Computed example of a mutant assay.
Amino acid sequence: MTISTPNQLELLRELEPTVESGLNQHLSIAKDWHPHDYVPWDEGRNFAALGGDDWAPEQSRLSEVATAAMITNLLTEDNLPSYHREITASFSREGAWGTWVNRWTAEENRHGIVMRDFLTVTRSVDPVRLEEMRMAHMTTGLTSPMDGSFLHSVSYVTFQELATRLSHRNTGQACADADAERMLDRIAADENLHMVFYRTLAGAALDLTPDAAMDAITEVVIRFQMPGLSMPDFRRNALLLATHGIYDLRQHLDDVLWPVLRMWKVFDRNDFTAVGERARDRLADHLEELSRKAVRFEETRERLRAREGARA
Rank of each mutant, 00 (worst) to 15 (best):
A48F: 08
D281H: 12
L75T: 03
Q225S: 11
L206C: 07
T120N: 07
R296E: 09
E191W: 07
D179A: 06
S21R: 11
E94D: 13
V256Y: 08
E161M: 03
D53Q: 15
E191R: 05
I87C: 00
P35G: 02
R282T: 08
L166F: 12
R103M: 08
Y83I: 00
T88P: 00
A306W: 14
G22D: 00
L193Q: 03
R236K: 14
D179F: 01
E181T: 06
Y247F: 13
N102I: 12
M138Y: 01
R129G: 02
N79C: 01
S153D: 05
T300I: 14
W41K: 11
R85F: 04
E289A: 13
V128Q: 11
A56Y: 04
G245T: 02
E108A: 03
A106K: 08
A274K: 11
F272M: 14
R269L: 10
F224M: 02
K31I: 04
N192H: 14
L261N: 10
L23R: 03
G141M: 03
L290H: 07
N73P: 07
M263Q: 15
T105R: 02
A106Y: 09
T200Y: 08
D190G: 03
G112Q: 01
A238L: 10
A48V: 08
Q8Y: 11
E77V: 03
S92E: 00
G245P: 01
A306N: 14
E86Q: 06
L193T: 00
K265L: 12
M214G: 03
D207Q: 12
L50I: 08
L208N: 05
A238G: 09
P17K: 05
A213R: 05
H286P: 07
L184Y: 04
G22S: 02
N170E: 04
A176F: 11
H36M: 13
P259R: 02
E108L: 02
R182H: 07
S153Q: 06
I113H: 08
E64H: 01
Y247M: 13
T273E: 08
T243S: 10
R307A: 15
S124Q: 03
A274P: 08
T143F: 02
A274R: 12
E94H: 10
R199S: 13
N7P: 10
V275L: 13
S60A: 01
H152T: 10
R45V: 11
R110Q: 08
F234D: 01
T139F: 10
T120H: 06
F118Y: 10
M1S: 13
R235A: 13
L184P: 05
D285R: 12
A188Q: 02
G309W: 15
G52F: 08
